[in-house]
Design a protein around this nucleic acid. Structure first.
Ligand SMILES: [Mn+2]
Ligand SMILES: [Mn+2]
Ligand SMILES: [Zn+2]
Ligand SMILES: [Zn+2]
Lengths: 147, 147
DNA sequence: TTGACTTTTAATAACTATTATCGTTTAATA
DNA sequence: TATTAAACGATAATAGTTATTAAAAGTCAA
């Protein structure tokens, strides 16, 4: 890390109102250097290369601190438990980033909202994310070789 | 449950290639009667009212059986562990329903695909779901009362 | 720079959700 | 009805995560 990198990280922490620590900076740097959607365990393994004494709990706490501060995001706001979809109709979801509640919304209600109409339940939208669900090429091949 | 309901459930199980059991039918009926996105624990609590001796593991197993058979869906395919989003650009996700891998896709790649263009990595889409992320009305009020 | 005060850390215990194991029971089917 | 495969209940095991606590490090006014 260069002096300017260290200063940038200091500025980032200042604006988030959190302390600058060596552990925090290394977690941040490794997250920035990783691609995809790493788990806390994967981050921990990389950070441990640089700080062998670090604790997994420290990695968890720093990841949460970053997420609270808006420096990183979670991929999905999951509830920590499996949830069954009981609504068989085609629909989308309003997900609260704070309490993580999930509310159904009709496909056409969503389309109207993208044309300026407000959402049900006075939901205040910040952003939206699309999941395209299907089969990756490896799983297509596995499925083909079975039949 | 009426005789015709029982026959319908039998037909459902037949076409899914799974056995008809009393426990399975009660789990199914309670799921159908529940709204929203219940957790296995919540299903268990309701089923236990009707079959006090049922095991939580049986509820889990039947929910999985239903999901494998396509009778019900999971709300989120990646609820198992926290994942950090390392991609700061606006983007969406290709999620494999089989291996649960998550691949980034640019917002404009997604728009092109909705106009007939094929997706990256030979991904085979089945459906898509939109998550509108934001604040529910309760959390808006909590936030307002803080400031 | 110092000293009071706050935050973070490491170690580890505890907890929650989920899965595996295994002996028993039940359902499918011949 | 007998055979066989599937499902069940009890409970142990595991994975992911959070809580606790004392020590170390960071912050900040003077
Ligand atoms: Mn839903
Ligand atoms: Mn992503
Ligand atoms: Zn909320
Ligand atoms: Zn796959």
């Amino acid at each position: 890390m260069t002096v300017s990198d260290a200063n940038q990280f200091r500025a980032l922490c200042d604006s988030a109102g959190i302390a600058v620590t060596h552990q925090r900076q290394v977690v941040y740097e490794e997250l920035c250097a990783m691609h995809g959607h790493p788990s806390p365990e994967e981050v921990y393994l990389r950070v441990k290369e640089r700080i062998p004494a670090i604790s997994l709990a420290t990695v968890y706490k720093n990841i949460h601190t970053f997420i609270e501060s808006g420096i990183f995001r979670e991929v999905s706001l999951h509830h920590g438990s499996l949830r069954v979809e009981t609504n068989a109709h085609s629909h989308h979801h309003l997900v609260c980033t704070q309490c993580k509640s999930i509310t159904d919304i009709d496909a056409d209600e969503f389309l109207l909202s993208s044309r300026g109409q407000s959402l049900p339940n006075k939901f205040l939208p910040e952003r939206f994310s699309v999941e395209v669900l299907g089969l990756c090429v490896e799983c297509q091949q596995k499925q083909a070789s079975l039949s």
